[in-house]
């Protein structure tokens, strides 16, 4: 384990230190440095302090653990690997993510999972323990987003306009979500046994990371949202 004291380093210097030959790193005193571990592979990184925006952007099979909150655009366009956040994430977590996992113990800001996509064996997975802000899964094209609502602080599990522009992938919200308004172009229904089996392996991993019980989580109903292929989004902005 190599230790990087980030106190007086800018983001270039932090990333330069991370590009060393070692595989296990600990960043201490992180305070807003952007692009940490961008595009990196084969590293195990733990961060103490607050990482800046675009943590793990283009991540290519590295593991990042943050012992606090993270800011905006965590895992922007990440390809492979895993980002584990023991706190909240800001806006646009998993922006354009196309592989790997983002597991968040706390809440997510606006536009979590915007434009996530999937291709063959590449299926990105994002799990948020608390609640998510408005525009969850906006323009989602693939992958799996799961919101658990474990600690909502009396807020709804998701804000306004969830799944706007969705045309692929799945969103799972724990609970029946009767008071949540979804757009007409998506279908929200109770997740069936097969779908719950699909997400069990992800939830089991999440629970082992954060110390919850997957069986307990799955004992409550989940709502699954998918695009309505009979009534897809078209001509959202212009007639073309």
């Amino acid at each position: 384990m190599q230790i990087i004291d980030a106190a007086n380093l800018d983001y270039r210097a932090v990333n330069e230190a991370l590009r060393g030959t070692g595989s296990d790193y600990l960043i201490e005193g992180c305070l807003g440095q952007r692009f940490i571990a961008a595009g990196m592979s084969d590293k195990n990184l733990t961060i103490n302090g607050i990482p800046g925006n675009a943590l793990g952007a283009y991540l290519n099979n590295a593991n990042i653990t943050v012992n606090a909150n993270a800011q905006d655009a965590v895992g922007d366009t990440m390809n492979e690997g895993k980002i584990l956040i023991h706190g909240n994430v800001g806006d646009t977590a998993g922006y354009g993510m196309r592989g790997g996992k983002i597991f968040v113990q706390g809440n997510a800001g606006y536009r979590a999972g915007i434009h996530m996509k999937a291709y063959k064996e590449k299926i990105p997975v994002m799990i948020i323990g608390g609640h998510a802000g408005s525009f969850l899964g906006e323009y989602q094209a693939g992958g799996v987003i799961i919101i658990l609502g474990l600690h909502k602080d009396s807020k709804p599990i998701v804000g306004n306009f969830p799944c706007t522009g969705m045309h692929g992938g799945k969103v799972f919200l724990r609970g029946t979500c009767e008071d949540i308004h979804f757009p007409k172009q998506v279908t929200a229904r109770h997740a069936d046994t097969k779908e719950l089996e699909e997400i069990r392996k992800y939830l089991a991993e999440y629970c082992s990371d954060f110390g919850y019980s997957a069986d307990e989580l799955l004992s409550e109903p989940f709502t699954v949202i998918t695009p309505d292929s009979k009534n897809p989004y078209k001509q959202m902005y212009i007639a073309n």
Partner: peptide, 8 residues
């Protein structure tokens, strides 16, 4: 704009 600013 960022939590880092508050922490500083």
């Amino acid at each position: 704009s960022e939590e880092a600013a508050i922490r500083s």
